[in-house]
Every structure is written in C-alpha cells, then in structure tokens.
Design a protein around this nucleic acid. Structure first.
Lengths: 342, 342
DNA sequence: CTGAAAGCGCTTACAG
DNA sequence: CTGAAAGCGCTTACAG
C-alpha cells in the first residue's frame, strides 16, 4: 500500500496543501513544520503518485512541440514511430504533444514553427537542429529568456543552451565498425571508406572514429583514401568499380551513410560480394535485406525509436515531475546486427 | 486537447457511466445506444486517459506478485533492476508489486509463495520457472481455475497455460554466435564449445543453434567435441589446457555459460589469448572486463533489464487496461557487443 | 437499461 | 503561514 499525501498530512497534523508546499519547497510553510513534514515523508517512504499528479496537471495542459527535419527519409520515419509512442503516452497522462514534420532541411521553417509554438504557449520543444546561426541564437533565446527548454535529437548543435541531446555518438559508432572490420578481415589488407556528403558532420565523425581505430588497433590494415558518393547510388557504384580496379585485393568497405544499394549491387555484378567484407549503418528494411542476402556482413545502428521517444518523455517528465535529465548527452545504444539477430 | 468520456457522453446525450459500459462492452446498455456511443468515440478519436483510469483503479488495489529464482546470480541481479523499475512505475500508477527472491532453484518454495500470494488476493504473477511437474500443474491451476494470469520470464516452461514468456531465444543466440565465429575465424579451422551443465536446457539450445549454424554456413570449420565445465572455473581451465594439447591449432572457443574467467585466464597463461577467438554470453562486469582486455572478442547478451521490466508491465497493463500481450513469446533482443559499444 | 455520485491522489487558486 | 475546496478523467457500487 503506497503512502499518500493524505497520510503524511494526518501524521503531521496539517493539511494536504501544506504537505505539498513543504515537499516541493514552494515556500509559505513555517520552516520547522516543513522539516517535520519532510522527515515524516522520508520515514514513510513516500513516493508521489504519477497518476494523481498527471490528472491534476491535466488542467494546466502542458504542451510539448516536436519539430523533425528530413522527415521524409526512412530513418526519420523510424524516429517518428518513437515520437508517436511518446506522444501517445504523454497524452494519456494529460499532456499535449504537437508534432511538425519538415521534408528536407529548412532552418527557416523551424524558426517559424518555434515562434508559432511559443505563441500557443508551448512549455518545451524537441527538435532536430541544423547548422544555422539564427537557429542557434533562437534556441538560446527560448531556453534562456523565454524559459522554454529545448531538447535536440538526432543531431546536436554545439555551444547552445539546449537542455540535452539524444542521439548517437557517431565517433564511437565508427570505432565500433573498425573493431568489427579488424576482426573479420583478420586484421590485414586494404580497406576503403565510402561516405555520403563530405560536409555531413555525422558521417565525418564516423570516418574519424573508424580510421583512428583502424590505425591504432590494426596496424596491418591499409586504409585506402575515403571516397564520397554524395548520396547517389550511381556515383557509389562507380566508386566501387574504380576502387576495385585500383585495389584489386580490397578486403573491406565501410559505408558511413546511404548508397548501400549502389555499392552492394556493383559488388554483386563484379562477383565480389562474398569475398569483400562490407559494414554499413542503420536498420532500414533495404539494408537488412542486404544483410540477409550476405552482401552486407554487419549493420551498425542507432536506436531510432529511442531518438524519437526519449526527447518527448524527457520534456514531459521535466514539466510534470521537475525531473531533470541525468546528463546533457543521451547517447543511444550502438547496436550491432548480423544475419542472425536482425 | 484529448477527448474525454464526458465529451462523448454529452455528444451522445447520455451519462459517463453509460459511455463507459458501452465502450467496455460491459453490457447493460441498449445495443442501439451502445453502437451510437462507439461511433461517436471513434469519430472523436477517443483515447482513454491512463492517469484517470489508474487513479480510479487504485481503489481496487491491483496486486502483482513476482517470484525470482537463482536471485543470487549476477545476471539475475540485473534482471532485478528491471523488476524494480517496473514496480516503481506500476506503483506510481496505483498498482502494488510484491517481489520474492529465492537463492538457487527451489520449486517447492515457489509453490509456497504462489499459495501465499493467492491467499493475499494477487491478480497476476510473474515467475522464473524450473522444470518441475508440480510447478507446471500449479501454473495451470492458477491460470485456469483461479483466473490468475502467469507470465514466465528468463526461462519458459512448455505446455502450460502461462500467458506469455519473456526471455531470450537461446537457439537464435547460439546462431548469432556462430555467425560471428564464422566471420572472425575466416570461416575455417577448428572451433570448440565449452558449456556449463549438460542438463541446462538454455545452454543446450545455444549449443544446438551454434553447431547447426556452423555446420550449415561454414563447412570449412571443424567443430571439436563439446566439453562441460559444470560451471567450475578450475574444470574449465583444465578443459582449455587439454583442448589445446589435442588441438594445438584451435582457432576459436564459444562459451555458452559461465566460467569465462577460468577459460580466459588459462588462455592468457598459455599465451594464446590474442590468437584464439573467444565469444561468450552475458554482460556481467567481469565479462566486460575480459572484452576490454582483448581476451574476449565478442559478448552476446540477453536484455536482462527487459526480462525484469516487461513481465511486470505486461501483467499491469493486462490488469489495468485489459491489454493482451501481442504474442505469447516475447523474445528479448539479442545484443552483440565488442570493445567499442560495450 | 440508465444516471447520479463518490472517490482514487494530486495541484492550485482562494480565503483567511 | 495554513486550510478547505474544487477539479483533473476515470470506475464502480448503488438507486432507480
């Protein structure tokens, strides 16, 4: 039988309102009384009831805004599932979650939505930022002056007052790939990295983590110069063709981003798919298919669901229970999948 | 603004009680009225409020019992964390969770606790079963005659009326290990399996999955006869010593259960730890240390937290929301960890 | 077959 | 500085 506020009130000989004020340090309680109440709550092992609190707070109508960029990509679609689950949970607990999805990257639109949310009295915002000076400034204004906490997810934005970030530690993801590549190539031979855009910070971090770890831990592996597909499957296929001409004994390829298809198809056409070890990122249906078929040896993933779910729940708990997130970085699990645990 | 029962009642021109009865099919509502109400609820997109329901149900005081065997093991300690989190969540939503932990395996004690729980009016029980005829029968009696749903976790018990099982697909775990072993040995050479007790079904399933997959997918790998350490580190070390005498070119070892320490230490002493690939199970602190040191190449894990958290929440949701678990088997994620994503 | 009412545990004006 | 009261959304006897 959990202890209730009422029981504490009776034990302390005061009213529930007073107990509430004392426990929440809201002031307007004589210090001695407050101390006594706190002691009693402690002794009784008081755990506030989420249900009671949520119901009472429903009147305040805590509103949370979510802004997701690049929403059209399959990966962001998975993140969206997590957002929806959190929306559902928060709303069944009396909250209110409004989700805005933007196709492609559009900092201007993000700013517009932020203003709109503010005008509607939003209490907190979760968003996928993009590198943009104005956006950074606005995040600071919201988090600072307006007192509207901001949580970034999927990508982070440095040096701002955002409350916390939920997403992958991309450098570590690259290192994990390096560890796998080192093992499955027997720690020797030529290995190539094929990336997307050379201006994508996340991909560059993966490259960094991968290359550093290979150089450090597998000195007998020779890293071939990194190529960029600019997210074009045709370009990626072309790169593979050239790569194998220049390095006929190539033993492995690490794909930091998309164009898995272009690469795997070309390897298949050249009849090299089983012998060349390939590691890629993200658990998209298409990628999983390549793992099942054997063209891809491993897939490394970020927990997309968590990237959508957590930011909303962090804000909701903060707003409802005043529970601060533990740390300002919430790195999602780096998941390794092969054919058997997909 | 989520829709409430009240709004539906107003729209339908009836009282909240009637709406409730109609939506829950509790009967005692004129069919036409019930249909109308359901239609309105559908149109308005009614989502019941967890907070409201939980609070109202608090009066009924839904009690859930959890019985955990082998509670002294480090793995079960991790499972216990999950149980505690679920207990906390369910209780803050008005439930009541009583946890009983048993050191070692003791079906008799489980039976005693089950009776005790029943006498205390428990509404559902989560337990780690053991192979025992009486226990099986009792599970059926509870689930059938008494109408007390039973969820098994960590291990399952075949052919009973338990509602569902939460735990690892051990065969699949063995296959995942095989996929890794195949890759890191280059798909050729001698590989050994060292297991714990030869009567442990979970370990035997891992062996089965491992051996089948190796035979099927890596024909050039020669599987050496499986040895049993009976969970004794000294015995395990001895096994390694003999194994390397008989098979000096051994390329890999798959450890299905405990005795990681005995095996890794012996490999270290013999100076073979870097060259022989070793894959083991479970993310115990000790095991992680062996991965970091490089003696273990991979660790395969069951999601221990989920094994504790899910059974309680499945019962709680069933009791609170009448939400049936999706399937009768809830296999936890098979997780692969190397040095970098530990 | 249907409705009015009490109550779950909490928060929040409001009155004193 | 403190208390009494209303109300959040739901369920559940109870009365009709």
């Amino acid at each position: 039988m959990p202890v209730t506020l009422q029981q504490i009130a009776e034990a302390a000989g005061v009213s529930r309102g007073t107990v509430d004020r004392a426990l929440k340090n809201r002031g307007r309680v004589k210090p001695e009384v407050a101390d006594k109440i706190k002691k009693i709550a402690e002794e009784l092992g008081y755990q506030p009831s989420l249900a009671g609190r949520a119901l009472a707070m429903a009147r305040r109508n805590v509103k949370i805004g979510v802004i997701q960029q690049s929403a059209q990509t399959p990966f962001m679609q998975q993140v969206y599932e997590g957002i929806l689950a959190a929306k559902q949970e928060a709303e069944s607990l009396g909250g209110n979650v409004d989700v805005y999805r933007i196709n492609g990257v559009d900092a201007g639109r993000v700013l517009e939505i932020m203003e709109e949310l503010k005008d509607n009295g939003v209490s907190g915002i979760a968003l996928t930022p993009s590198e943009d000076t104005m956006l950074k400034k606005t995040i600071d204004t919201f988090a600072g002056e307006y007192g509207i906490p901001i949580v970034t997810f999927n990508s982070d934005v440095e040096d701002t007052k955002r409350l916390c970030f939920v997403g992958q530690n991309t450098v570590q993801s690259g290192r994990t790939a390096a560890g796998l590549m080192g093992e499955i190539t027997g720690g020797a031979g030529e290995v190539a990295v094929i990336s997307g855009h050379n201006s994508n910070p996340a991909l560059n971090n993966r490259i960094k983590g991968f290359c550093r770890e290979i150089s450090g831990s597998y000195p007998d592996i020779k890293l071939v110069k990194t190529r960029y597909s600019y997210d074009d499957d045709w370009v990626a296929a072309k790169i593979v063709e050239e790569l194998l001409l220049e390095h006929p004994k190539l033993k492995g390829i690490y794909i930091t981003g998309s164009t898995v298809k272009g690469i795997c198809e070309m390897l298949h056409n050249l009849g090299r798919e089983t012998e060349i070890k390939v590691i890629a990122n993200d658990f998209l249906e298409e990628n999983k298919e390549w793992v099942r078929s054997g063209a891809l040896n491993f897939l490394i993933g970020q927990d997309s669901y968590v990237q959508g779910y957590e930011p909303v729940m962090i804000l909701f708990k903060l707003l409802l229970e005043d529970e601060q997130p533990g740390s300002s970085d919430r790195y999602t699990e780096i998941v390794i999948k092969n054919k058997y645990n997909l």
